[in-house]
């Protein structure tokens, strides 16, 4: 059978492979012994003729595209991130560390005693949770350009910048709580996940735009910028909740994480402080989520 498409003519193939064109109005359902495949195609043809079903198809496509974007890519990124050998994360981190140390960072001006106290807290979290302390490397640095911030690289190198420690209203418990949050980023492989997500978005945009090779590079940049913040928010919240669990096993109070967050949000008017918030978005929601988690754990 040659089930027609649109208004183009269809026809019929005979056993000797000759083809006969059938008139436009011909009802293919009247042919005996159509077979399952032809019946299915006739149904498809019937659907194609109506704009209302076409609209339904658009909705299905938009819905699944969105679902894939919001849940599919993150889930895939997560499973891939956990399968990758550590060497991948280390490789990515090495380059970043070299760049940062060369260009942006200066030695910390925190006094030895204060650094030692924070290192104690850091080691305490690792020990209480049974994490491999050898992969971790806590570095105190000063950077005017980056300001009040702390971040973790996939290899386990964690940077704590002076600006954050010296923040008004920030105490040792708060800084240790933020370190717990950064440890969670490392343990949960968030760095790799976000790299893989970005690659995934690139492939995804390519699929959407189709076989137009030039469109790819133009199109990938846009969705990346638009949706990245939404992505990182879910990872941040996850890191917060795990940080609460890590802290619960130590003598440090998990509430300190919520308070530290509040301190960072509260000082928004100071330029440098916005940094940690902007790379770690939606402070208020995160604050509530941490509070709720603490309650759940009955702490």
């Amino acid at each position: 059978m040659d089930i027609p498409t649109g208004s183009a003519p269809g026809g019929i193939y005979f056993p000797d492979d000759s083809h006969v064109v059938l008139p436009p109005g011909f009802d293919y359902n009247e042919i005996p012994d159509l077979g399952k495949e032809n019946r299915m195609l006739l149904l498809v043809r019937w659907i194609e003729q109506y704009w209302k079903y076409t609209a339904l198809a658009v909705v299905i496509i938009l819905f699944s595209v969105l679902a894939f974007y919001l849940y599919g890519i993150p889930a895939m990124a997560k499973s891939i991130a956990y399968k990758l050998p550590d060497s991948v994360g280390n490789g990515i981190s090495d380059h970043v560390i070299d760049e940062l140390e060369d260009r942006l960072f200066f030695p910390s001006e925190l006094d030895e005693e204060q650094q030692a106290v924070l290192r104690d807290g850091f080691a305490g979290i690792l020990e209480a949770n049974g994490f491999n302390a050898y992969r971790y490397d806590l570095r105190f640095r000063r950077s005017e350009a980056i300001g009040a911030n702390a971040f973790a690289l996939p290899s386990g190198t964690i940077y704590m910048l002076d600006g954050l420690v010296e923040l008004e209203g920030m105490d040792t418990d708060g800084v240790v709580a933020i370190l717990a949050h950064e440890i969670a980023h490392v343990e949960l492989r968030h760095g790799l996940q976000s790299v893989i997500r970005q690659a995934g978005i690139g492939v995804f945009a390519t699929l959407m735009i189709g076989d137009v090779s030039v469109g790819i590079s133009l199109a990938t940049a846009l969705p990346k910028i638009l949706l990245e913040t939404g992505y990182s928010r879910s990872l941040e919240t996850e890191a917060d909740l795990y940080a609460v669990e890590y802290l619960a096993k130590t003598s440090y109070p998990p509430e300190a994480l919520a308070e530290a967050l509040k301190t960072l949000i509260g000082d928004e008017d100071e330029d440098a402080l916005i940094n940690w918030i902007s790379t770690h978005p939606a402070g208020n929601k995160r604050y509530e989520a941490i509070r709720q988690k603490i309650e759940e754990l009955g702490l």
């Binding site: 498809v44 194609e48 658009v58 496509i61």
Partner: peptide, 27 residues
């Protein structure tokens, strides 16, 4: 061929491919 006619064929068949997790793709 016309764009609006082909659009319906394209979108319906693409949706069916998605709904069948790719199994309908050859058709």
């Amino acid at each position: 061929g016309s764009g609006s006619e082909y659009f319906r064929i394209w979108i319906v068949n693409t949706a069916l491919t998605i709904v069948t997790i790719g199994l309908y793709w050859p058709w």
